[in-house]
Simulated scan of single mutants.
Amino acid sequence: MFTGIVQGVATVAAIDDRAGLRSLTLSFPAGFDGGLEIGASVACDGVCLTVTTRPSPDRATFDVMQQSLGLTTLGTLSVGSALNVERAAKDGAEIGGHPISGHVDCQGTVLAIRQPENNHVLRIGVPASHMRYVFAKGYIAINGASLTVAEAHRREGWFEVWLIPETLRMTSFGAKREGDALNIEIERGTQVVVDTVRDALEERLGALLPALEALLAERGHSLAELGAPGGKPGS
């Protein structure tokens, strides 16, 4: 498990591609890898990876299987690419963000960037299959960072997060540009609530469920909002 508090930015030092497998060697920031052993877990841009070798004190190699390469942004990395990294949480660790598994659900895309004074705003598009779990003021993990959703527009398929200078300093978000892909992990508690409500409605309504969904859509809402935290509809 991880806390969603990024501990630094690593860079890709080497890539070794084999059939169905990619080995990434990462170079870590100073002080990050003290006591890091083979078999330990590290969140790399939000993907939980296992240390396979330690080529030098400031580096570690991770094997990434084909499924992970296809689902996440790790398949697009090149030497010199920057990644957010966090070591696995220890028992009793302070959860400064929210519990994160390191299992990415989908990729999002940076649709727009705004820079009001002392802030950095990312508008991110995600597939409809996962947008149903995104609510304003709720948590979401983006490239391993626990962030609060500032605004969510379900009909248009995007949400926004606001980043303070400290977040930009400790992560790779400041280098992201429009069109860049991001790893998204939805908050599990929200997913459980939304799916439970949806399953209950489907069981009770049966064939009437599509009609209810169409009616809600006409009024600017969605079925997912019935499971929103606190019962508050999203935008």
Rank of each mutant, 00 (worst) to 15 (best):
E213F: 01
G138I: 13
A152F: 04
T109E: 15
G125S: 10
R132D: 01
E117F: 09
Q107I: 00
E185K: 12
V121H: 07
S129D: 14
L208S: 12
T167Q: 08
T167S: 15
G125R: 07
L215V: 03
Q107D: 01
E178H: 00
W158F: 15
A207C: 05
A181C: 05
G125H: 02
C106G: 01
E185Y: 01
R155A: 14
A207K: 14
A211M: 09
A211P: 11
G179D: 11
S222A: 13
A150V: 06
T148G: 07
E178S: 00
L208V: 00
E203S: 15
T148V: 05
A150C: 10
A112S: 15
N119H: 09
D105N: 13
A141K: 03
A217W: 09
H130Q: 11
A136H: 09
F135N: 01
L212G: 00
A145W: 08
M131Q: 15
V110S: 07
V193F: 03
G125M: 02
P165C: 04
G206R: 12
D105V: 07
A200D: 09
I142R: 08
R154E: 12
P116T: 12
H153E: 10
S222Q: 13
A175Q: 14
H153I: 10
G144V: 00
L201W: 03
M131L: 09
S222V: 10
E156G: 04
L209Y: 06
A217N: 06
A200I: 07
V161H: 06
E202Q: 14
G189H: 11
F173N: 00
Q191E: 14
P210M: 10
E178Y: 02
K176V: 08
G138T: 07
A136G: 14
I142E: 13
Y139P: 08
N183M: 04
L205N: 07
A145C: 12
N143K: 03
E117A: 11
G144M: 04
N119W: 09
V193T: 08
V193E: 12
A152Y: 01
L201F: 07
R188N: 11
V126D: 03
L209I: 12
R204F: 09
E178Q: 10
V197P: 04
V121S: 02
P127A: 12
M131F: 05
P116E: 13
H153A: 13
I186F: 06
G138W: 05
A217C: 10
R198V: 04
A181I: 02
I186C: 14
R155Y: 07
Q107G: 13
L209Q: 05
S172V: 00
V161I: 14
V193P: 00
C106T: 15
A152E: 05
G144P: 03
S129V: 11
F159P: 00
A181E: 02
L122T: 01
T109F: 06
R188E: 10
V110E: 04
E151H: 15
F173V: 00
L208Q: 15
E117S: 13
V197K: 09
E218G: 00
N118C: 10
L168T: 10
E117D: 13
S129R: 04
V134L: 13
I140V: 15
V104A: 01
E185T: 05
H120G: 02
H120V: 04
K137D: 13
L205A: 08
W158K: 02
R188S: 09
A181P: 04
L147K: 01
N119V: 06
G157C: 04
V161L: 12
A136Q: 06
E213V: 05
W162E: 12
